[in-house]
Computed example of a mutant assay.
Amino acid sequence: MIFITIAEDHIALSDGLKVFLEQDTDIEVLGTAQNGKDMLELLEYLKPQVVLTDINMPDMNGVELCKAIKSKYDIKVIALSMFDNSGAINEMVQAGADGYILKISPLTELKKAIVEVVAGNNYYDSAIDMNLINENSEQQPEKKLSRSETDILKLIAQGKTSAEIAKERQTAVSTVAKHRKNMIHKLSLAGKNELYKYALQRYSHYSN
């Protein structure tokens, strides 16, 4: 028997996944949560072999959840997401995810992933070109950015203004403006509009 929990903020999808997976008599869904924070609380007393997680969730997203799980438990993590861009996939891979499945793929693909990761293998959606993903990962220009700049880039992807970013990070607007200017220079971009487009391309899974 394979025991699973699901972190997904859309209840209808979570319920649908549970019904589909439990058609297989070898799979049981122990519980569901609508965000990463609630899932971590579930894991304190549930002992699944696999956690299926969306990436874009409130309170704690799938990347943060995956990192937290891998730091504390011997549990497999499979990302189940709409995002097939290299930024989203690489972030989950670097967080320690054992698999990555697109929501638009047949659910039979998800079952294959579950079986493979439980067997100790990694499994990525057949629609994903992992050679391209790995190549992009090695050449990511974000490696030039500081941790603060990367965090701000993610907030820019959410469409937040410098004032909103400054308030969230409890810093001065001038400091955020300086980080923006530095990022434009480091990434060889033409200006703030290109920075926003770049942020969306790399971190669209952080947008609301």
Score class of each variant (00 low, 15 high):
Met1Gly: 11
Phe3Lys: 13
Ile6Gln: 01
Asp9Arg: 03
Ser14Val: 02
Leu17Tyr: 04
Lys18Asn: 01
Lys18Phe: 03
Phe20Trp: 11
Glu22Trp: 03
Ile27Pro: 00
Leu30Lys: 05
Ala33Tyr: 08
Asn35Phe: 04
Asp38Lys: 15
Met39His: 09
Glu41Ile: 09
Leu42Ala: 04
Glu44Asn: 11
Lys47Tyr: 08
Gln49Arg: 12
Val50Thr: 07
Leu52Trp: 02
Leu52Asn: 03
Thr53Ile: 03
Asp54Asn: 13
Asn56Met: 12
Met57Lys: 13
Met57Leu: 13
Asp59Ala: 12
Met60Pro: 10
Met60Arg: 11
Val63Leu: 08
Cys66Pro: 05
Ala68Gln: 11
Ile69Ala: 07
Ser71His: 06
Tyr73Ile: 07
Asp74Met: 06
Lys76Leu: 05
Lys76Gly: 02
Ala79Met: 05
Phe83Ile: 01
Glu91Gly: 09
Met92Leu: 15
Gln94Phe: 07
Gln94Thr: 13
Ala95Thr: 06
Ala95Gln: 02
Gly96Ile: 04
Ile104Ala: 14
Ile104Leu: 11
Thr108Gln: 11
Lys111Ile: 15
Ala113Gly: 13
Ala113Ile: 12
Ala113Ser: 14
Val115Gly: 04
Val115Met: 06
Glu116Asn: 12
Val117Glu: 04
Val118His: 06
Gly120Cys: 10
Asn121Arg: 14
Ser126Leu: 12
Ala127Thr: 13
Ala127Met: 14
Ile128Glu: 10
Met130Pro: 08
Leu132Arg: 14
Leu132Pro: 01
Leu132His: 11
Asn134Lys: 14
Glu138Tyr: 13
Glu138Ser: 14
Glu138Val: 11
Glu138Leu: 15
Gln139Val: 10
Lys143Met: 05
Lys143Pro: 00
Lys144Gln: 10
Leu145Ser: 02
Ser146Glu: 02
Asp151Ser: 10
Ile152Glu: 00
Leu153Ala: 10
Leu155Trp: 00
Leu155Phe: 06
Leu155Ile: 04
Ile156Pro: 00
Ile156Lys: 08
Ala157Arg: 00
Ala157Tyr: 01
Gln158Asn: 04
Gly159Leu: 09
Lys160Gly: 05
Thr161Met: 06
Glu164Asn: 11
Ala166Ile: 03
Lys167Leu: 15
Glu168Cys: 01
Thr171Trp: 05
Ala172Asn: 13
Ser174Arg: 10
Val176Glu: 08
Ala177Asp: 13
Lys181His: 09
Met183Arg: 02
Ile184Lys: 11
His185Arg: 12
Lys186Gly: 02
Ser188Leu: 09
Leu189His: 03
Lys192Phe: 04
Leu200Ile: 09
Arg202Ile: 02
His205Thr: 03
